[in-house]
Simulated scan of single mutants.
Amino acid sequence: MSAATTSSSSASTGSAIAQLSVSARLAAGKGEAKRLRKSGQIPAIAYGKTLASTPIAVAPKEVITILKSEHGKNSVIRVQLSGAERLVMIRDYSYHPVRRELEHVDFVEVKLDEEIDVEIPLIATGKAEGVVKGGLLRQVYRTLPVRCRPDRIPLKIEVDVTPLELNGHIFTQHLKLDEGVSVRLPAEQTLIAVVAPEKDRSADEAAAAPGAAAAPAAAAAGGKAAAAPAKDAKAAAPAKDAKKK
């Protein structure tokens, strides 16, 4: 197996901090959730290392706008919580199973000087040399677990696969990331590879299997052995008839 040593990647970083209006939510339960939805809001919660779990209410349209933005779930959001301005990110959210309306959102507090873990899309660009020659491009990871500060979160990580030959691989260590951005995978973890077509691989694997070469020889030997008794039996038949005469 050969590894691509000329692969490159680009990570777009830096984004404007989104704004989100939140309001305190004192009550809980289905009744309160129904009341909030009638008023155009939904229940949410915010928490963090220095922020106690705080029930809040947000406008679902504003949250959806953030989710549909360039950074999506990885957007850094400025909110007013507990009388102070804080930065948060969307940790989780849920939709109604039938109406598909946003029902609840979890926010986690972040600090610009502290690293966080996020998932970033991995995009393969170009057409691999191995694919031109009949191979298949296999992308093992569609997203990558990345660690960086909130203000350095990449939009995506792009990898040029053009120089990748048949049986070539792109490993984590081949990625060229911006300063302060790291991928939380082993250095020799395969991210993208060019492999032989399945039918060719199956034939190669069968040929390489232990005893595969001996099987035809054994079958041929068995065929000769099976033919021998038949020949002897045919030769013995006239002798038996001769005896009867």
Rank of each mutant, 00 (worst) to 15 (best):
H96R: 11
V105G: 01
R25Q: 11
E85S: 15
L51A: 04
R25W: 07
A228G: 05
L112F: 07
E158N: 10
K68V: 05
Q173F: 05
V183I: 12
E205A: 15
K245F: 13
H104Y: 13
A128C: 07
T65I: 08
I17Q: 12
Q80M: 10
S182V: 13
L122Q: 02
E165H: 08
V131G: 01
A203E: 15
V132I: 15
A220K: 14
A207D: 07
G134S: 10
L166E: 04
V194H: 00
A226C: 06
D204T: 12
M1N: 06
G40M: 07
T54K: 01
I45T: 12
K243R: 14
I153C: 03
T65V: 10
L191S: 02
R152M: 11
I123R: 01
L155E: 07
A212D: 03
L136E: 11
A33E: 05
D178I: 04
K224H: 09
L36Y: 00
T172I: 06
L144N: 01
Y141G: 03
V140K: 09
E119Q: 15
E198H: 12
L191E: 01
A225E: 10
A242Y: 11
K199E: 15
P186A: 09
L144S: 03
S7D: 07
A219G: 11
M1Y: 10
V195K: 07
A215I: 09
H71M: 13
P197K: 07
A28W: 05
P145H: 05
L26F: 12
Q173E: 10
L191H: 02
V194W: 00
A236V: 08
I153F: 02
I157S: 00
R25L: 15
V98Y: 10
L20E: 00
V131L: 06
D160T: 08
A24Y: 05
K243W: 11
V105R: 00
D241Q: 12
G180T: 08
E62L: 08
A207P: 01
R152P: 00
S94I: 14
I17Y: 11
A220E: 13
M1D: 07
G72Y: 06
A11T: 10
A57V: 04
K231P: 00
L155C: 04
T50D: 14
T190R: 06
E188V: 09
G168P: 02
I56K: 00
A28E: 15
L112H: 02
A207I: 07
A236W: 08
A24K: 04
A236C: 06
V58A: 02
G135C: 07
T13W: 04
A220M: 14
E85K: 15
P150R: 02
L81W: 05
R86N: 03
A230C: 06
T162G: 03
V132Y: 09
P186V: 04
P97S: 11
E85L: 11
R184I: 12
P97K: 10
L144V: 03
D92V: 05
E179F: 09
G130Y: 01
C148D: 06
P121S: 06
N167H: 14
N74Y: 03
D200M: 12
H96T: 09
L177Q: 01
R86E: 01
R184Q: 13
T6G: 14
K61D: 12
A193K: 00
A219S: 13
S9M: 05
E205R: 15
K234M: 12
A46Y: 02
G168M: 03
A225M: 14
K224E: 08
S69H: 04
G126Y: 02
R201Q: 13
G72P: 01
